[in-house]
Each structure stands twice: as C-alpha cells, then as structure tokens.
Design a protein around this nucleic acid. Structure first.
Lengths: 261, 261
DNA sequence: CGACCTTTTGAAACGATTCAATACTGGTGG
DNA sequence: CCACCAGTATTGAATCGTTTCAAAAGGTCG
C-alpha cells in the first residue's frame, strides 16, 4: 500500500470504493509481473493535487489518507473549505463544469482516484446504488459546509474549535478511525486555523484552554482525546448524534455487502 | 400571479421550471372554473417554509420570489447559508435523507414547488437534461458556499459586503433582474448581516463607507447601484466574469428552447 | 397620530490578531 | 553522538477591527 503506517483503512471501505470507481488502491501485478494501479494515483504528504482555475477531472475519490480542499484570498490568506477523508467523493468543479473552484492538497500520503465527467456519469448510470451514494455524500458535504459556515459567521473561537474537533471525531468514527473518542489529526495548528478562520496563535490558546478545563487532552501535536464529550458538545452547540445524522452519509448495505467486494 | 409587483420573472425561466417540476406557478382554471395550482404553493413574505430538524420534502423549486436558507446557534444568532432565487432548486435534507438541516423562510412573497424524494428521482430518471441541470445547480450552490466561506473566515467587513453585493448582482443578472448594475435586494441590513456574519450596525457603516467612496450608491433601503465595478471587484477579491463562471449554472438550451415551454 | 421597525452615528468594551521572544520537535549532516 | 536547522507550539503585550450599547432620525402602516 502506498500510504505508510499511520492510517489503517477499513477494508470494507476500500472494497466499496474500488468497486465503484474501478480503482485499485493497492498496486496489482499483471501477468507479466508489472506493478500497476488502475485509475488511482498516489501523492505524497504536502503535494498539490489540483489548483484553482485549472481544468480538472470531474470527480476525486479518496481511497486513502487526508486531502484538503481550500481557497485563498488575494492577500494569501487561505481557507480550508473541507477535508476529504477515506471514502469521500469530491467534486471540485465550478458551475461551468470544466475548471476547479478549489485547490486540492494532500495532507498525508494519499491514494486518490480521478474520474472524468463522462466516466463518472457512465458509472452512475450503470449503478443506481452508486448514484444514491454520491447523492448522500453530496448532501453530507453540503450539511458540513452549512454547519461550519454558521460557526464561522456567528461563533466565537471556542465554538469553532469545539465544533471542528467534534466534526472530525464523528467523521473519523464513521470510518473506524477513533477509539473511545481518541483520534489523530494529521494537521498543524496552522491547518486548524485555516479550517476555523482563526490565527494559528489563537488556535493554540483555545486548545490549551480546553485542555486546562479538562474537556480535551492533547498529545504529540494533535492526538486528541475528548474527555468531556458533553461539555465539548455544549460549546460546539450540537451533539455527536445529531451531527452524525446530518453530516455522515448513511451506510449503503447493498454496496458494502461482502459479496460485492 | 401570487407575487405582488416588485419582482418580474423571466417567462423562459418560469417555463423551464414548470416543465421540470410539473408545477404551474400561476393558478390555472379547470373546466369547472375552479382555480388551482399543481404542486406549487405560495407563501407570504416573512413566512416560514420549513424548520430545521423537521421532516421535509426532498426538494424545493423556487418559481418566484426570494427565500433564505439559514441556521441558528443556540444563543439565537442566525446565519443565512444561502438565498434561493427564482430558478433555484434547493435540497435542504441532511445526510440521513429525511430531515431538514436548514430553516427555510420566505423573504418576499414566493411561489415554491415541493417535490418528494421519490417524485424528484422519477423526474430526474425520465429526463437526463433535468439531471444535468440539477447537477449544475448543485455545483453552483457548492461554489457559492465555498466563496462565501473563504470570506467569512478570512475577509474583513468590506470584503464580505463587497462580495455579497457582487454575488447577488451576478446572480440577479443571470435571471434578468438587473439593469446596468442596478438591482433591488428584498433584504434588511439585518439580513445582510446574517448573510455576511456581521452585525447590522457594521453592515450599515460598511455600506455607507462604500457609498462615500463612490463605489456603490444606495437608495430606498437596498436599491443598489454599482458605480465602480472594478473597485468593488477589487475589494471582493474576484471579478464578475470569473464569479459568474463559478456560481451561475450554465444555461440549458435544450430545456430553455421555446418548443419545450 | 402613535407604534414599530429600520437605519444611522458615536463611544466604550471586547475578542482576535499581530508582533515578538522562547521552547520544543524531528530530521540532517558533520 | 551531538550540533544544527527548519518548522511548530507556546506565551505575553500591544494593536486593531468588530461588537455592543445607546440615542436619535427616518420610514411605514394601522
């Protein structure tokens, strides 16, 4: 597998995505002994995957690792619009259908499958389940943006940070990457600032305050443990259950069934 | 027509939507002389159309007038996530597919057609053009949220206000509701504050400053005339042309053609 | 006309940013 | 192995932009 150690992906997730996109995240060996991957490409942490304004493939499927979708203002200030986690399907095209309206970057080593508009359409037409899954993922993405926008516009720093941690916890939980409200974020405080619209300095202060209040515990630069989930939810203004219903796409049993892997 | 005076809708737009949704915005008279409308419902300005957390129809088509899509924090602070203008198709459902993750309100008298998930699916399956149009509208909506989120997170008050005016100008232009960069917003400064994440007081100050700088001209509570488009674009950090490509769905000649009306 | 909502402006208070200095981390090469 | 480096985290102090509070003016409607 391309991605080194840190992130272990749920095999069911990978199976689902491989089936849907025709991509094989891990290299296969053909009959001549040559390694290849179908559709999927690997990128190293920190690498740019797509630039704003560039012509892009219609759809990106994240097979492995984290990507960030961001935009920058003329003065260089960057806003992370969303994170792409394993299992996410990202459409970064603008309304004109051809150019990207977002910059896409690899936060960790990642494996990403890029599909053309035509290819994506073909696959969706062939599989109503895929279409439904894509619709759910899009609805989840939209709901995430809305929740975040609410807090960007009207929330204080603690609200934004608490919400960000809660959102990422819920999303990671849904793909099996948390244990008892403990999880790792492959981010710097700078990233978290770009995500929450705060300066990295203020992110630091706010995290330390939450830490001193025994609401979270941090280790090793953003290994997060949520100690007091109720308190964190209280600050964020939403609980994990309602948040999950809103921003995590419902599992698709048909597609996830072992027989389809 | 249900909507009084202020907003005149492009007949082509209404034709397009009526065909797609099966709704007739204006009352029809059946053979018994009884007035009726199919699917579409009218709401008065200020009326709530849907509440957050409520079970909702999957899709709302705005036939006439403005609606706002908003969320509120526990302390009562509200953020307007997006406006729905004539011709927009709004899906307010959360990822769970059943409940609304947004509050929907009528800003003017409006005519809105509500479609169930099943109905919407059926229509999309029957018409690839409809599916494509819906995809474009969704991409446009996503691009709008992204642009706005960038400025909510990283932009100063003038940037946010300038962008909001520019976005609304571009959107209104695309449905024929501007004349020479002059347009009417059916909003209060309070609304504009909820849209831009600013207090209404600061919206006022910022508008007056833009006005004093001869960049815009305001009359009659939010009749806006953009005098210096270049300057406004400069502040907003994006020009009208690029913005239009990003956030306005491409017209669909097949559907808009008179023969299909 | 009065009641109510919206806009406008000033002054004080608050929260977040910026600047700056120090400490910590992991990786590199002598 | 240690020294060094660049990037990151942490903390304090000063500054800045926005909010809040308050008061007055304008508009609309019964």
């Amino acid at each position: 597998m391309a991605t080194a150690g840190a992130i272990e992906v749920d095999p069911a997730l990978r199976r689902r995505l491989s089936k849907l996109t025709g991509a094989t995240g891990s290299p296969e060996v053909d009959k001549h002994g040559v390694q290849f991957t179908r559709n999927a490409r690997d990128y190293k942490a920190g690498q740019a995957i797509a630039f704003e304004g560039e012509e892009v493939a219609s759809v990106l499927c994240v097979l492995d690792g984290w990507i960030s979708l961001s935009k920058t203002l003329e003065d260089g200030e960057r806003q992370i619009i969303d994170f792409g986690l394993p299992g996410d399907i990202v459409t970064a095209v603008a309304a004109d259908g051809t150019t990207s309206c977002l910059e896409v970057d690899a936060l960790t080593d990642v494996t990403v499958a890029a599909l053309s508009h035509a290819d994506w359409e073909r696959r969706q037409s062939a599989s109503p389940e895929l279409r439904e899954m894509a619709d759910h993922l899009a609805a989840a993405s939209h709901a995430r943006l809305s929740e975040r926008m609410l807090r960007l516009g009207k929330g204080s720093a603690p609200v934004r940070i608490a919400y960000a941690l809660l959102e990422l916890c819920v999303r990671l939980r849904s793909i099996g990457q948390t244990q008892d409200h403990t999880f790792h974020l492959p981010l710097t405080q700078q990233h978290l600032g770009e995500f929450t619209g705060l300066s990295s300095v203020h992110v630091c202060r706010t995290l330390r305050r939450l830490s001193r209040q025994q609401i979270i515990q941090t280790e090793d630069h953003l290994d997060i443990k949520i100690i007091d989930l109720a308190a964190l939810s209280g600050i964020a203004g939403i609980g994990p259950d309602r948040l999950q219903a809103e921003i995590v796409p419902a599992p698709m049993p048909t597609i996830l069934a072992p027989g389809n892997g």
